[in-house]
């Protein structure tokens, strides 16, 4: 099995304690929340792994640790065998790993800087990772990216507020593609969109996976989306992985009660399965 990313015994403990002075005065102990508790799984190269679970189950926390936005309090994230959070890596090595990891965010309204033109938004990663030489090459690459996600080159001059939610999510995807990543975390990329637009965005993501050989970690609570997208599914509950299976197997014969409940509560998938 050729794994791109391996997550080993991942832990995230948030300190929810009150300020020091308040603790001293009221004699309250420190409070912690284990948002992610000993989670391990791997994702095969070119495949999609979906994490499902209710709100607060730790899906997004895992996603943020997998791309390096958040440092785990325990465990490791291995990208092609290299520890992403290894402090001994040089800046250049970290940069090289980071370039391979990207993310598409949940809200198409908050994920694009409203004061930047689309062209600048897409050009930023190109500049930071020095992927193009000169303004002409940069512009050509921006146009190429826009066309890759089904928008037109002239959209580069417009501002994010001039686009619909689905189009903005396409811009988000184009930005994620700009640094030529191998791995993209999709954090509920369709939950803020209309059902009809959802399908278009999902199809785009699938097509890009085929064309570019991308590996996805897909975060969602929508089992209908999962069924279309994922090769494997992990079910999270209160920070723990309760079940992990290939997609069809998990939906047809769920092992844990919690998974069964999730499937029963998803109307579309339930009808399809029965």
């Amino acid at each position: 099995m050729d794994e791109f990313i391996r997550i080993e015994h991942l832990n995230q403990r948030f300190d929810l304690s009150e300020p020091w002075l308040a603790r001293m005065i009221y004699r309250r102990p420190k409070k912690f929340l284990d948002a992610v508790d000993d989670v391990s799984f791997g994702i095969e190269r070119g495949k999609t792994y979906a994490l499902v679970g209710e709100s607060g189950s730790g899906k997004s926390t895992i996603a943020r640790m997998a791309v390096g936005l958040l440092t785990p309090t325990g465990g490791r994230v291995l990208i092609d065998g290299q520890d992403l959070h290894d402090g001994s890596l040089s800046v250049a090595e970290q940069r090289r790993i980071r370039q391979r990891l990207q993310m598409v965010f949940q809200s198409p309204y908050a994920s694009l800087n409203p004061r930047w033109r689309v062209g600048s938004i897409l050009a930023e990663p190109l500049r930071v990772f020095r992927l193009v030489d000169g303004p002409q090459a940069e512009q050509a690459r921006v146009h190429e990216l826009l066309e890759q996600v089904g928008l037109s080159a002239s959209d580069a001059r417009r501002f994010p507020h001039e686009f619909s939610g689905g189009q903005r999510q396409r811009i988000s995807i184009a930005r994620a593609l700009a640094s030529k990543p191998d791995f993209i975390v999709c954090d509920e990329p369709t939950s803020a969109l209309d059902v009809s637009v959802q399908a278009q965005v999902l199809n785009l993501l699938k097509q890009l996976q085929r064309d570019l050989g991308l590996t996805y970690l897909f975060i969602t609570h929508d089992l209908a989306v999962v069924r279309v997208m994922a090769h494997r599914i992990g079910v999270l509950k209160s920070g723990k992985l309760v079940e992990e299976q290939a997609t069809e197997k998990l939906i047809e014969s769920p092992q844990s009660d919690y998974t069964r409940m999730l499937i029963r509560s998803a109307p579309r998938i339930h009808r399809a399965a029965s």
Binding site: R98, A110, P125, V128, F129, S172
Partner: peptide, 13 residues
């Protein structure tokens, strides 16, 4: 806290 700031952090700014 908005996601465009996360996206900027992601590319290592």
């Amino acid at each position: 806290e908005k996601e465009y700031v996360q996206a900027a952090r992601l590319i290592g700014l």
